[in-house]
Design a protein around this nucleic acid. Structure first.
Length: 269
DNA sequence: TCCTTTAAGAAGACCACATAGGCGA
DNA sequence: AATCGCCTATGTGGTCTTCTTAAAG
């Protein structure tokens, strides 16, 4: 199933080639846990109370092009609160340290420390050294042009993967042609300012929360009985056979066990 | 300075079950 | 071509375990 933000298929899940994929065709979504968006544009058909559906937006509607542009202009993350924690810093270094050569993690300009997504920068040359490189902008040093151009970024965002082959950078020949042309420099300056403004705006809208793709599964998980945090078996109320002796940590002895949830289970069936 | 112990924090594992989707009959 | 049954993979949340580093003694 396609999960990318682009495509002309289902407006819910992005599946191409059809009006709506069949798991959406059950009709309106009458279940909206915790204020999630309720989508009712699908044809109404008899449906159980919980309809499994996917969503990839975050409330604000952006078109596909803008979504991708956001990723390509991905900024360095703002200073993270957990960066002050030694343990948190340790985990960041341990798990997402970029596979770069002779490169200090603290110098990674933008993409590796994103919260909620994982980014790998495949360095084909020297790494870019500042935010502008991450944005595909032009820094003061001419070397940065080729440095940024020699890298490609693979980004994971909201369950989708995108690539950015430093699309906004110029090669050496283009840079040489631009030298001495003041109008070009002015244009570049304006482009840079525009990109910086776009970056700042999108940083405000960025969503760091965990993405829930299936609200119905979330609903089921929340109502499912647990034993010490783990999902526990739901006793079959229809089974006439006597229940076997229960271990001390059995479901019914758990403080989290709520018999009323059985009614909910039958309701959802 | 070196070693050991303690505390703190985060990530991952674990569990059951509904559901999607593939496959063959 | 459509339908059915079977099977596997996936996703979901709360708690516990494991791992690592920093600080203290």
């Amino acid at each position: 199933m396609s999960s990318g933000p682009s495509g002309a298929g289902c407006r819910l899940c992005g599946v191409e080639g059809g009006c709506f994929c069949h798991h959406h065709a059950g009709g309106s979504f009458s279940f909206s846990p915790r204020g999630l968006a309720v989508v009712q544009h699908h044809e109404a058909l008899p449906a159980p109370p919980v309809q499994e559906f996917q969503f990839f937006g975050h409330g604000d509607v952006v078109d596909d092009h803008d979504s991708v542009a956001w990723l390509f202009d991905d900024p360095p993350p703002p200073p993270e609160d957990h960066s002050s924690s030694p343990a948190a810093e340790h985990h960041h270094q341990r798990q997402i340290k970029p596979p770069m050569q002779s490169f200090e993690y603290d110098d990674v300009p933008s993409l590796f420390r994103r919260n909620g997504g994982l980014t790998f920068e495949v360095s084909l040359g020297l790494p870019a050294a500042d935010v502008d490189a991450g944005l595909g902008l032009f820094g003061g040093s001419g070397d940065l042009h080729t440095e940024a151009a020699a890298s490609a970024t693979i980004m994971s965002y909201c369950g989708s993967t995108f690539t950015d082959a430093a699309s906004s950078t110029l090669n050496k020949q283009e840079v040489a042609m631009a030298d001495g042309h003041e109008s070009l420099n002015q244009q570049k300056t304006m482009e840079r300012e525009a990109k910086v403004m776009r970056y700042k705006e999108k940083r405000k809208r960025r969503c760091y929360q965990k993405q829930i793709r299936y609200a119905s599964r979330k609903a089921y998980a929340e109502m499912r009985p647990r034993v010490r945090g783990r999902f526990a078996k739901v006793p079959d109320v229809d089974a006439p056979a006597p229940a076997p002796p229960l271990p001390p940590s059995s479901t019914t002895s758990s403080p989290n066990y709520d018999p009323s949830r059985l009614e909910l289970r039958q309701w959802f069936r």
